[in-house]
């Protein structure tokens, strides 16, 4: 991630890593793509706080996902939205050509 916060509407993907332990990015969102709803503020990394380690600050974003992206054909309505708070270190910016 660069230093500039991602802007509202930017297309992003949540990293698909599945380490054991306390991870604040919900598993059902990892590997999924969505768009930045808003940048909130920097917060200390909860994955370090959880183990009482010195914690670095990361920008916290609200990311918006389409139900169809998360659940495919099982979605109740493809255009329903799910929004969640995700820390910058779990977010990959997508190239415009990747945009759905």
């Amino acid at each position: 991630m660069g230093n500039d916060p991602l802007k509202t509407g930017a297309r992003v993907r949540i990293r698909a890593l599945m380490p054991p332990g306390h991870v604040r990015a919900p598993a059902y969102l990892r590997g999924k793509s969505g768009s930045i709803e808003r940048a909130i503020a920097p917060f200390k990394n909860p994955e370090q706080l959880a183990y009482d380690l010195p914690a670095q600050e990361h920008m916290l974003y609200r990311v918006r996902f389409r139900a169809a992206e998360l659940w495919g054909a099982e979605a109740e309505h493809p255009d329903d939205m799910i929004e969640a708070e995700i820390y910058a270190h779990w977010i990959e910016a997508m190239e415009q050509s990747d945009a759905a």
Binding site: H22, P46, A50
Partner: peptide
């Protein structure tokens, strides 16, 4: 003495 994150970790 702990953060809410530490509690969540222990719960998980």
């Amino acid at each position: 003495y702990f953060t809410v994150d530490g509690l969540r970790r222990a719960l998980e």
